[in-house]
Simulated assay, not measured.
Amino acid sequence: MTAILLAFIGFCALIVLHELGHFTAAKLVGMRVEKFSLFFGRPLAKVQKGETEYAIGWMPLGGYVRITGMNPTEEIPEEVAPRAYYRQPVWKRIVVIAAGPFVNIVIAFLIIWALLLANGQATDQPVVSKQDLGQPAAQYLQPNDRIVSVDGVRGDPAAIARQVSTHRCAGRQVDGCAAATPATVVVERDGRLQTFEITPRYDGTRGIERARLGFSYENATRNVGPVDASGVAVTGMWDVTTRTVETFGKLFQAREREQLSGVVGTSETLRQSFEFSTTLALYVLAIISLSLAIINLFPFLPLDGGHIFWALVEKIRGGRPVPFSVMEKAGAVGFVLVIMLFFIGLSNDIGRIGDGTLGDIGR
């Protein structure tokens, strides 16, 4: 229950901060904000402060900021007309619209940067993990030990596992039986080599069914400073961005469509990550925040990127406004895209619920 609550709070925080970006930018450039709402639909609660109504809707699928004059054809009282959205210069409109995704990008960066400073950067060197350290390994090995060899055999984790599996129980191979002979395990610990004689045990778990020492691997980490952490965070975020764009560019390929998740799958993944570890939960939250920014910047109305696109078109046209009818027709394409993405993600989530794989993490 706690994990569900934390996931919900995290999701809400991303929405509020995104809309707060639009809200703050609009106020700073002098636009009139009529409403700030967390979630959609009829308000469950609302309060009026000055010219702005603050509300919480009943449909937890997002949020919005309503700025006076977002529709250029709406009738606006003369006293507020100068502060209407479409009465503002192009640069102000772009600043206000881009502020929401910008906040999500900053949130993602700060979370990843802080996690790197706290936990270090993962390397490609496998070491003994503190997770799943069981018997008999727990009597000899320590987290972050690097396995150098087993019985003189060196190699990657797969090669080490194959060598350990050559040790067999004296009689029938049954779950938990001890091997007839011990394995000679050489590890590197704090820069020095140590040798242990460890007797493997047979693991009859379905999918394993071989002798094991009783540990798993994780990648070693290295400490990074604030500057290095910034570079690593930006590089990682760029990789996520390019993969996300590539995925949406291949929506007509069945395999790529299967990778999409909707709000159900995203929430479930976040919930499970809170149950697994706070670090993983924060990382997932950062990726969700970055993904919200990327999707919102797609150049289709009603997404933020659509508003930015048409503002730039107006600038290229020498300040001549684009006919609202043209934007409406183009917006219909964007609306269809958004609905298509929503239903593809939702159908994938339903399928994962059916086969029990929704939100699988670390398996």
Rank of each mutant, 00 (worst) to 15 (best):
A122I: 08
F39E: 02
A122D: 06
V224G: 15
P143S: 04
L193D: 11
T52D: 11
V245S: 02
P126C: 05
G171Q: 02
A99D: 00
E314T: 09
G356A: 15
V16C: 09
I15W: 03
P321T: 07
E246M: 15
R255D: 12
R154P: 05
C169M: 01
F23Q: 02
G305F: 00
D190I: 13
T181K: 10
F335G: 06
A98T: 00
I316K: 02
N223R: 13
G41C: 08
E275D: 10
L251R: 04
N144Q: 09
S267E: 12
G319Q: 08
V187T: 03
R172I: 13
I339W: 07
N296Q: 04
W238S: 07
M340Q: 04
Q253T: 14
V164W: 00
G152S: 13
M237Y: 05
S261A: 12
P82F: 14
L312W: 05
M70Y: 01
G207K: 11
R192W: 06
V150H: 02
L251A: 07
E19M: 03
P321Y: 04
A286E: 03
S261H: 13
V227H: 12
Y54P: 05
V284W: 13
L110Q: 12
V284Y: 12
V174K: 15
L260G: 05
L280Y: 09
A13H: 06
L117W: 04
V224D: 04
V234R: 06
Y86N: 13
V245P: 02
T195E: 13
R243M: 13
Y64D: 01
I294C: 02
M340K: 03
E78Y: 15
E218F: 12
D203V: 07
L346K: 08
I344L: 14
V127C: 08
I288Q: 01
W238Q: 14
G345W: 06
V95S: 10
S216N: 12
L251M: 10
T123P: 09
Q194M: 08
E34T: 11
V284P: 03
V16R: 04
L193K: 11
A179V: 09
V33N: 06
R206N: 07
A254F: 12
G171L: 01
